[in-house]
Design a protein around this nucleic acid. Structure first.
Lengths: 131, 131
DNA sequence: TCCTTCCTTGACGTTAACGTCAACGTAAAG
DNA sequence: CTTTACGTTGACGTTAACGTCAAGGAAGGA
């Protein structure tokens, strides 16, 4: 098992393809400080950790988080390994704020979904009447 | 009860203020065909119905719906009162698509919230270790 | 060697969703 | 009658999140 420590990596093209975005998006995220892939010479090398970060970002984007908000969240993964009480306490407070915000959005989504269901129900009733 | 049929109305400024947006936003939504308030001469007059539409729109915006998506949904409220079978059937299919999309976003949100909770938990554990 | 494919950086373009400013009308208050 | 506080339209500006070239480098196959 000589090669057991060789973790899988991706090129920009591969990772972009796999997650359904363009390479431009990956370079943009890097420019905005959301990703920081290794380099093999000039070329970017993405690890499984980079890939996980990217998936978090893309997931957030799908329900309206800005890149700045995404960055704040992924950065917290690193901050949570701090050893300073003040840092951890501050981070924890921020995380609570973020959770509250996400729950509000969850509520907005839930209500919207409910109302879409209402309209669908109304459609079905009118279709029944048309028999 | 002579005046019982006089429903409450709002001016742009009043409605914007009440819902926490600017008047520019209301005029923009009108230009994009999401709202169509009555006029009293030149001035816009918003009814409770307009207000309800606006609340739906703003709610959708909060979790990442575009104005075009918002318009499609609010327009369906009107379409659901159609009397043509084909119209209703088409609308119903579209509503199912939208519901599926919203549920995906709901899932994305749920997962993100869970992971934020994970990070918070990790913070708390590290804080405990620091006693 | 040449060709293709993938990568790089840099720079300008585009779209959505408003912000901002100008120039003007009008109705109530002082 | 003028000031103040709304309202109107029109037009240009701004920000975020990429899209879209352009120009070039490095690796591998025919």
């Amino acid at each position: 098992m000589v090669a057991a420590t060789q973790e899988k990596t991706w090129t920009v093209g591969e990772l972009a393809e796999e997650l359904g975005v363009t390479t431009r998006t990956l370079r943009h995220y890097e420019a905005e400080g959301l990703l920081a892939p290794r380099r093999a010479g000039q070329n970017r090398v993405y690890t499984a950790r980079d890939r996980a970060r990217l998936r978090l970002i893309l997931r957030g984007r799908r329900f309206g988080m800005t890149l700045a908000e995404c960055r704040e969240i992924v950065d917290m993964y690193d901050g949570a390994e701090s050893s300073e009480r003040l840092q951890l306490t501050t981070l924890l407070a921020r995380l609570d704020d973020i959770s509250a915000d996400l729950r509000r959005r969850q509520d907005d989504l839930r209500r919207t979904l409910a109302e879409v269901g209402e309209v669908a129900g109304q459609c079905r009733r009118r279709l029944d009447e048309l028999v």
